[in-house]
Amino acid sequence: MSNGASSATRLDAFLLSVQARAVRVAEIATRSRDDALDIVQDAMLHLARSYGRRPPEEWPPLFHRIVENKIRDFQRRQTVRNRIFFWRSRQADDLDEPQADELAPDLSVPDATERLMQAEALQRLKCAIATLPERQRQAFVLRVWDGLSTDQAATVMGCSDGSVKTHLSRALAALRAQLGAAWSLEN
């Protein structure tokens, strides 16, 4: 019982540490905050049911894999739904509109103009990530955003280390080409 309690506490801490990022990642992929929350909630329960008693060091790649699989399932369902209900398909540029919380003032940056530019640059980056092909988006999110190693990202993506490096390199090239060489969050 105490073992179950301690693993529950550790899993809770792990999920708390990754939940916000997972929601953001899913939001970029699905272009919907509510769907992203649903996906993350499902992924949490799936991880607990299937892998909750595994060693904690195995949780990060497993959780990311579950989230990615659920995103893919969602996109497949969405594709089928859009074919059937084509007049109700979601607008592709939903993400282009910055949300209120993204433009909220960041107290660490003193100047209001800088804050606005920072938010705008970040929004452009998110839109660019959303337009990447699936495998490139996965490689970028896992390696750059989540900070997984190449090995762990390869495990999550189900491919070789070399493929992860190739996808990441292409993703970075595409993002830099799309955002321009002068893009920076600091200007």
Partner: peptide
Amino acid sequence: SADLAFAKAARAGLRASESLN
């Protein structure tokens, strides 16, 4: 090096934007 600088800036920005209401 160019990719590295871009990736680090993107990582910092994206992580700063992680928030839940």
